[in-house]
């Protein structure tokens, strides 16, 4: 059985890692995944892998699975309101179907 969920993706600057993670935690999400990200956007190319003197040039991508769309929107709204005026950032929601996840689906499985 697959359990339907919302996948919230936030791509933002690496230096916001802890702050965005805090928002996600406080919204009550069961967990999240972070990966290094690079690419091109409204604030020029911010690529991964190029030697950089400090973290101000690197991006990260958060993926959060939430049961309710409300929670995902709440996280995105807070992150956008606090940071996206001044920092690079983009957020979007995808439909997802969770197949295996211990905490997320509960002890009985999905």
């Amino acid at each position: 059985m697959a359990k339907s969920a919302n996948k919230l993706v936030i791509i933002t600057e690496k230096m916001l890692l802890n702050k965005v993670a805090q928002i996600i935690d406080e919204a009550g999400a069961t967990g999240y995944t972070v990966v290094d990200a690079g690419g091109k956007g409204s604030r020029n190319v911010r690529s991964a892998g190029q030697p950089s003197v400090s973290d101000t040039e690197s991006n990260i991508k958060f993926e959060v699975l939430t049961e309710s769309r409300d929670m995902a929107e709440k996280i995105a709204d807070q992150a956008a309101a606090k940071f996206f005026n001044d920092y690079a950032g983009i957020a979007y929601i995808c439909e997802a179907e969770v197949l295996y996840a211990h905490t997320f689906c509960g002890p009985d499985g999905c």
Partner: peptide
Amino acid sequence: PTGGYPNSDQRSAEGSFSGGTGGG
């Protein structure tokens, strides 16, 4: 600030979040 995103002081960020969309 050009309107839109609330522009709360970054330094006070550690403390409270201004709570969702309406918190703007």
